[in-house]
Design a protein around this nucleic acid. Sequence first.
DNA 1: CGGTAATAGTTATTAATGGTAACTATTTTG
DNA 2: CAAAATAGTTACCATTAATAACTATTACCG
Lengths: 143, 143
Amino acid sequence: MEGFFQRYLSLYRSLITTLNELMSTYELSYSLWQVIYYLKNNGPSTLVDIANHYNVEKPTITRRVHRLEEFQMVVQIPGMDRREKVIQLTELGEEIYQACRKKITDLENSVMAGIANEEQLITFQTLPKIQDNILRGGGSKNE
Amino acid sequence: MEGFFQRYLSLYRSLITTLNELMSTYELSYSLWQVIYYLKNNGPSTLVDIANHYNVEKPTITRRVHRLEEFQMVVQIPGMDRREKVIQLTELGEEIYQACRKKITDLENSVMAGIANEEQLITFQTLPKIQDNILRGGGSKNE
DNA sequence: CGGTAATAGTTATTAATGGTAACTATTTTG
DNA sequence: CAAAATAGTTACCATTAATAACTATTACCG
């Protein structure tokens, strides 16, 4: 499947730019959206939860959460374990989730225009398989 | 197709990281590889050619070419039009192209392990359709 | 119990990547 | 020939994320 990466990666810039434009109305970028999305779907969580889920380092999430706090989309409350801060969506955060969710879903539908349902589905299902293969094989050592 | 972007972007990070690790042996990253790839497949070219092809701004390519020059993988020679500099691969650049091409193709094959040929093909064909839709629709104005 | 290791989170620094604006040098156009 | 267009560069800035070093708290274990 020579040329696959090229096609795959070529799509990235247009997509991320479009998404960021889409969300700029709400002062969000896709990276911030990920945090909101996680909180909405997993409930109040710690920074480490989020970092593990997206496979990024802790400082990355610290920054994102601080930005979301400035915009008052999330709040941090101390956990029972006093090392932890539990991050949760505010009312505003929930509202923005709803608005963005709709916009993103609309875009997800519109980029699939003219593509047969079965082809959409196969592509949808193939991506995680590829990711599994990468995580398994290219994890760093190839054993 | 809700959740498609999520899957797409999640794969992106693993893929680009793996590719960059793969090429770090040759002091390349994927962004530098793109320039080498273009030169190999289109022959000696100008900076503007490359920028147009990848849809990025000129300074972006200036930087990449300068890095490749430092590594002596490309040279710039003055064109007949004396504004232009024609960029071309050196011997070393060609060698590195070959070595990387092989590594990348190997990786392209290995990430498809366990995925039926037809599914690979459909995914391969669907990606550019999605990109077309994005470029058409989200180009900035939606007309 | 007390000390060491582990964990949650932060800050500072750095790197990769790419856009915008402003500029020079040359060529094209009319 | 003057003005517009084009190729390329430089300087500056934004986004994103990794690493290292640090504080505070909790868990573990002899």
